[in-house]
Computed example of a mutant assay.
Amino acid sequence: MSLRERLSEALKTAMRAKDQPTVDAVRMIIAKLKEKDIEARGRGVTDGIGEDEMLSMMQGMIKQRRESIELYDKGGRPELADKERAEIAIIEGFLPKQMSEEEAMAAIRGVVAETGAASVKDMGKVMAELKARYAGQMDFSKASGLVKQALSGG
C-alpha cells in the first residue's frame, strides 16, 4: 500500500473512531502533500510527488514541530507543546523505521567512500546522496553533524 493510500485509510479510520487529534494531523499531512503536488506541476510532475519527496516533506513537518515545542516550552505553554508532540507521534507513524546513530554512521561512511568525499567541502554531495537513499529513515539535522565528523577524520 502506498503512503498516499495509507494516509487516506488512516483518515477514514480516525474519522470512524472519532479520534480528532489523528484526524487533524492526517488532514494536515494531506494538505501539505497537495500543496507539494501543486508545486511539482511547475516542474512537469503531473501525477504527484514521489514517496521519497513525501518522506522528506514529513521529516520537515516533524522538524517544524520540534522547533515549535522548544518555543512553547520556553514560553510556558505546555499544552501547545504537548499537541505538537502528539502530531509528531502521528507523523512518525507513517515514516519507515528510523536508523539508530550507529546505523546512520555506517550509512554515512558508505556514502563517503562511494562518492570519494575527502573533506568538508564535499559535504553537500554526501548529504544529497544520503537524502536520496535514506529519506524518512534518517534525521538529517543530526546526520549533517555526523557527516562533518566523518569528513574531518572522526
Rank of each mutant, 00 (worst) to 15 (best):
62 I>R: 04
126 V>G: 03
105 M>V: 13
62 I>L: 03
49 I>P: 03
16 R>P: 01
55 L>S: 02
135 A>V: 00
57 M>I: 04
42 G>R: 05
148 K>V: 05
59 Q>P: 00
109 R>I: 04
93 G>R: 07
76 G>S: 06
19 D>S: 12
55 L>E: 03
13 T>Y: 08
12 K>T: 10
41 R>L: 06
94 F>R: 09
4 R>H: 03
91 I>K: 11
3 L>D: 12
12 K>G: 13
117 A>Y: 02
35 E>R: 10
86 A>M: 10
103 E>L: 01
139 D>N: 15
147 V>K: 01
134 Y>H: 14
33 L>A: 09
111 V>Q: 01
136 G>M: 14
75 G>V: 03
41 R>T: 08
101 E>N: 04
44 G>I: 05
31 A>G: 09
57 M>P: 00
108 I>H: 01
139 D>R: 03
124 G>H: 14
115 T>P: 05
7 L>I: 06
53 E>L: 05
42 G>H: 07
103 E>P: 01
4 R>W: 07
9 E>I: 08
57 M>Y: 02
9 E>K: 15
26 V>K: 03
86 A>Q: 12
120 V>F: 08
71 L>I: 02
109 R>C: 01
38 I>E: 08
33 L>Q: 09
106 A>H: 14
89 A>Q: 15
136 G>C: 10
43 R>V: 07
133 R>H: 03
52 D>S: 15
119 S>M: 06
28 M>F: 08
22 T>A: 15
35 E>D: 08
150 A>M: 09
58 M>G: 00
48 G>Y: 00
59 Q>A: 07
139 D>P: 00
124 G>E: 15
77 R>T: 02
51 E>C: 00
148 K>E: 06
65 R>H: 12
29 I>P: 00
94 F>E: 01
150 A>T: 14
123 M>I: 15
28 M>E: 11
108 I>Y: 02
143 A>S: 11
101 E>D: 07
113 A>T: 14
19 D>A: 14
85 R>A: 10
56 S>V: 00
115 T>Q: 12
56 S>P: 00
64 Q>N: 08
57 M>T: 04
143 A>G: 05
35 E>S: 10
91 I>H: 06
98 Q>P: 06
22 T>H: 01
75 G>W: 04
117 A>C: 11
35 E>L: 13
114 E>A: 11
131 K>A: 12
43 R>M: 12
126 V>R: 12
53 E>I: 02
84 E>P: 02
91 I>E: 01
28 M>W: 10
140 F>R: 01
134 Y>F: 12
52 D>H: 09
88 I>D: 04
85 R>E: 11
146 L>A: 13
149 Q>R: 14
118 A>N: 11
74 K>C: 04
126 V>F: 05
121 K>L: 06
13 T>C: 03
140 F>M: 03
70 E>Y: 09
14 A>N: 06
152 S>Q: 15
95 L>Y: 13
53 E>G: 01
